[in-house]
Simulated scan of single mutants.
Amino acid sequence: MQPFKGILYKLIAVICFIVMQSLIKAASDHVPPGETVFFRSFFALPVILAWLAWRHELSTGLRVKAPMSHVWRGLIGTTSMGCGFAGLAFLPLPEVTALGYAMPLLTVIFAGMFLHEQVGVYRLSAVGLGLIGVLVVLEPRVTALNGTLKAEEAIGAILVLVGAMSGALAQVHIRNMVRLEATSAIVFWFTMTSTVLSLATIPFGWVMPGGKEALWLIGAGLLGGVGQIFLTACYRFADASVVAPFDYASMIFALGIGYVVFAEVPSGQMLVGAAIIVAAGVFIILRERHLGLQRARAQAAKTP
């Protein structure tokens, strides 16, 4: 094991994904979410194929043992991606990032429901605390307690939460898939299926992106592919419990990019809610490490 290298790779993956989201947000004013999913997936394919070829895993990446499991993974994961991208058009980048942290909390719940994992009082308490943090972040967007209620922001918050819920379901499904399927196959076929599924949104109003928008979207796809490679690679050098907390470094990058690029100033309430969610997430990671739960292969196949 080389934990420092694993942490470095995880941070590179986090940076790739947050910059990818920033590029998608920049294009989201004119480009519908289904089209952004297509660009994110299609232009990640050559990066992933090149990586598999370089690792001599091309045949492994193309081979499947349970085809329908990949279909379900594609449907759930594409829904998660599309909802998350749609939410970027309505909410600030740091807020989308904070609400996205609900995914590992919901994964604990769904793992208990569908995989019959034992979820003790400590993890349940942490999940409850984290969900309180989600409500703290969410409250200004879905209530009129502050005197205003904007429908677009409420829709954006709901979309991001649906995306987090779908992502949690996908993660639970992946935990089942890794018993039969290679990580490379899960990554490749998800990218393929999300590319194909995104084409079904053409009737809902695709547009011809302008020059800058096209570059942003292509860049998002390439960064998504590079980020996926580093995410998968980091688990070869360090345990999941070591690198998982560095997911939350994305908030630092989101705050910086949101302020500098989009002139987004986070509210104190959003920061408090995000801190509660992060604290709950880190506690769950430490608890899972104590319990010896194995998540590395499932995490490596996850597509943020």
Rank of each mutant, 00 (worst) to 15 (best):
T195V: 13
R63N: 13
A300L: 04
Y9R: 04
A214Q: 13
F85C: 07
V207T: 11
A249D: 03
Q228T: 05
L131F: 13
H290I: 06
L271M: 10
I132D: 12
I12H: 05
G6E: 09
C234S: 10
P32L: 12
I15R: 03
R123P: 12
S69F: 07
M251V: 05
A298H: 00
S41I: 03
R287H: 14
I276G: 00
A244N: 05
F188A: 00
A164N: 06
L99D: 00
L106Q: 03
A86M: 12
M208H: 14
P140K: 12
F114I: 02
L293S: 14
P304F: 00
G292C: 06
V260M: 13
G224L: 11
I276F: 08
G256Q: 05
Q2V: 03
I109R: 03
K150F: 03
L161V: 11
L215A: 14
A185C: 05
I7D: 06
T107Y: 00
F38H: 09
A274E: 01
G61H: 12
E152F: 05
Y122T: 09
A151P: 00
F253P: 03
L291Q: 15
T183M: 01
S241K: 10
T201H: 08
L11A: 06
G227K: 10
Q21P: 07
V162S: 07
K5Q: 06
G156N: 04
S125Y: 09
E181Y: 03
T97F: 01
G256S: 09
I158D: 02
E288Q: 08
P245D: 13
F237A: 04
Y235I: 04
I7Q: 08
Y259T: 11
A300N: 02
A279S: 14
A154M: 12
A151K: 08
N146Q: 15
P104Q: 00
E288F: 01
P140M: 08
M20N: 13
G256P: 02
E288R: 11
P3D: 05
I277L: 11
G74Q: 06
A53N: 09
L135Q: 14
G211N: 10
I109F: 03
M165A: 15
L222V: 15
K25T: 09
A182N: 10
E181L: 04
L62P: 10
P209M: 06
S250Q: 01
S241F: 10
R297T: 02
Y248V: 01
P94A: 10
G281S: 02
V265K: 11
L231A: 01
K65T: 07
R289K: 14
L8R: 05
G87N: 04
W216N: 01
F114S: 08
V242C: 02
F110W: 03
A66W: 11
T107C: 08
I48V: 12
E264N: 13
C16G: 00
G221Q: 14
F188Q: 04
F43A: 06
T201P: 00
L223W: 01
V196E: 15
Y235T: 02
V282L: 12
P304R: 02
V243Y: 00
M20H: 09
G273T: 01
R40Y: 05
I76V: 13
V136R: 10
R236H: 13
N176K: 09
L129P: 03
R287A: 15
A151S: 14
I218M: 15
P304E: 06
W206N: 10
A263L: 07
